[in-house]
């Protein structure tokens, strides 16, 4: 929407005002996330930019909070716990969700709308309600304070994303491709691995990434459910933020921002590849 040469003055003003407003909104979105990264290198235990930092004096910067993070067995254990829980729940959620999405997209699926609504509901129900419900239920069947219980609850939270993303990638699916493959003599297995899976894969991967991030970031349920040996990093961060916020948390937060940049890039690459494969975009 470049400004046409015949624009009036008021259009000109509006054009630039609009760009400035948008710039400010983008700034609002990104600045808070960016700002914690330099602060995590603060040599002082403060949450502001010290004079040394602003004058780019190297003495104002240090790796002490990263050092504190990596040398703390409590933090490292909880980070390990987080990854154990997230990876396990992602694998289960992806398997269950993908298969279910394949079923939901069959033309003969009975009660599709109702079942979809039920499968998506864990994403909609507030976490505190899920936590309240699962807390008592899991305590009763002996699953509170166990990895297994936490993983099950995260599978519940993760599957809606897998179902949605896989469904979305199936929605653009061209049925004639299957027929073409079969008419060219491929059997069902070949068709699945050569045609269906490659087209499905982007949806599966982004669903899995969503499930992974959801589990990695989850704090409400684990806060009620985790015993001392399962405490994940989010619970430690949450109590740290409530009690005595230390720059160590900012170091971990910066690493998590780096992780989200990696995930985001992965997704973007998948999306582009996907569009190319479907011939939607020329590039």
């Amino acid at each position: 929407m470049a400004l046409p040469s015949y624009a009036t003055n008021s259009e000109r003003i509006w054009y630039y005002a609009f760009r400035i407003i948008c710039g400010l909104i983008f700034f609002f979105l990104v600045a808070p996330i960016v700002v914690i990264i330099p602060l995590s290198f603060n040599a002082q235990p403060y949450f502001t930019f010290t004079k040394e930092m602003l004058s780019l004096n190297p003495a104002g910067y240090s790796l002490r909070w990263y050092d504190a993070l990596f040398s703390s067995s409590e933090w490292m254990n909880s980070i390990a716990n987080s990854f154990i829980i997230s990876i396990a729940s992602t694998i289960i959620a992806t398997a269950l969700g993908t298969v279910a999405a394949l079923g939901l997209n069959r033309p003969n699926m009975p009660a599709r709308a109702l079942i979809t609504a039920v499968l998506i509901s864990p994403m909609i129900v507030p976490l505190i309600i899920t936590a309240a419900a699962l807390f008592s239920f899991f305590a009763r069947i002996g699953l509170s304070n166990t990895y297994f219980g936490i993983i099950l609850s995260h599978v519940v939270l993760g599957t809606p994303f897998v179902v949605l993303t896989v469904t979305a990638s199936l929605a653009g699916f061209n049925e004639t491709l299957i027929r073409a493959s079969q008419s060219l003599g491929a059997n069902q297995t070949t068709t699945f691995f050569k045609i269906i899976l490659p087209l499905l894969l982007p949806g599966v991967i982004s669903g899995a990434l969503f499930a992974f991030v959801t589990s990695l970031d989850e704090v409400v349920i684990v806060n009620f459910m985790a015993g001392p040996s399962q405490t994940p990093m989010t619970v430690r961060m949450f109590s740290g933020l409530r009690e005595e916020i230390s720059p160590t948390i900012l170091a971990l937060a910066s690493l998590l921002v780096a992780l989200s940049i990696i995930l985001l890039t992965t997704l973007e690459l998948i999306r582009r590849r996907n569009e190319r494969m479907r011939g939607m975009s020329p590039g």
């Binding site: 305590a139 002996g142 015993g227």
Partner: peptide
């Protein structure tokens, strides 16, 4: 209370 009620004391 919750643990005793649930019969699962940890």
């Amino acid at each position: 209370r919750a643990q005793v009620e649930a019969g699962n004391v940890t």
